[in-house]
């Protein structure tokens, strides 16, 4: 058995709280990115790109290009927030600040620390999504009140990207080497998950690859919520993200434990 159920309790919330308190200390800085990022993208694509490409055909509807990318921006922010939290930030806590070593001298278990890191990354992703949603909503790119569902969706997606990030933290030898999963995993996902152009524009052989990306499914679900449009079966996207999360939570548990228990 990989996990001993006795090692996981609600105590993980205490570790989550610790991250929240640290986050609050620099909350103003933490909120600048999700506030400005959508503005920059809307400015660039809405103003700069609009002359080249005013509308786009998606799921049988004709929509403005900016409306097309707006939900995808939230989805990619979810990915970035969660993934960077459990890679760089978790690595700093684990390796440089030895925060986990200190926690392991208390009644906390390693499993609780790992779960807390993933749940925290999802919380941070949901917070960023909420702010972006407010900005995009102000420009009319979000359907209300359905758009509020973006917040739980961001948390749900954040779990998937937080878990895969922590898995990399469990196996990466040095902090510089995070460049590798970012270059090979995050950047291709950012570009080819139907974020900036529909996946149907890709050559046929490449389309199934895009479908394997968790970000593709998060983008699909985000468009469903913000625009009411979808080109794939939403339930399958939910199931895919859930399965992806379960697998990488287990892998994160196994490899982080292997790394921390000496």
């Amino acid at each position: 058995m990989i996990i001993d159920p006795q090692t996981i309790s609600w105590r993980f919330v205490k570790v989550w709280q610790r991250n929240l308190v640290t986050f609050q200390r620099i909350w103003k800085v933490n909120f600048i990115t999700p506030l400005l990022e959508p503005l920059l993208f809307i400015a660039a694509f809405g103003l700069g790109f609009a002359g080249l490409l005013s509308t786009i055909r998606y799921a049988g509807a004709e929509i403005s290009y900016t409306a097309f990318i707006a939900p995808a921006l939230v989805a990619t922010a979810v990915m970035n927030n969660a993934f960077f939290e459990t890679t760089y930030a978790s690595f700093v806590r684990m390796y440089y600040q030895k925060t986990f070593d200190g926690m392991l001298a208390t009644p906390l278990s390693i499993e609780e620390i790992i779960i807390a890191e993933i749940v925290w990354s999802a919380t941070k992703a949901a917070a960023a999504a909420t702010i972006m949603l407010a900005v995009l909503g102000a420009f009319g790119y979000v359907k209300w009140p359905l758009g509020l569902l973006m917040i739980p969706l961001a948390f749900f997606g954040g779990i998937a990207f937080g878990a895969v990030g922590l898995f990399f933290t469990g196996i990466i030898p040095t902090i510089e080497m995070f460049n590798l999963p970012i270059f090979l995993f995050v950047t291709p996902m950012f570009l080819f998950s139907g974020t900036f152009f529909p996946v149907s524009n890709l050559p046929l052989w490449a389309q199934p690859l895009a479908l394997a990306f968790p970000l593709y499914h998060l983008v699909q679900l985000s468009r469903l919520i913000c625009l009411g449009l979808h080109e794939t079966v939403p339930v399958l996207s939910v199931l895919y993200l859930a399965l992806f999360s379960v697998i990488f939570i287990l892998l994160a548990l196994v490899f982080m434990k292997k790394r921390l228990v000496k």
Partner: peptide, 25 residues
């Protein structure tokens, strides 16, 4: 009291104690 410094550098002296107390419920 571990050999390495495992205190939270971003937090205050008091916050370090109070958050740590949380780990003991």
């Amino acid at each position: 009291c571990q050999q390495d410094n495992t205190l939270d550098p971003d937090l205050t002296v008091e916050q370090n104690l109070i958050l740590f107390a949380g780990y003991f419920s």
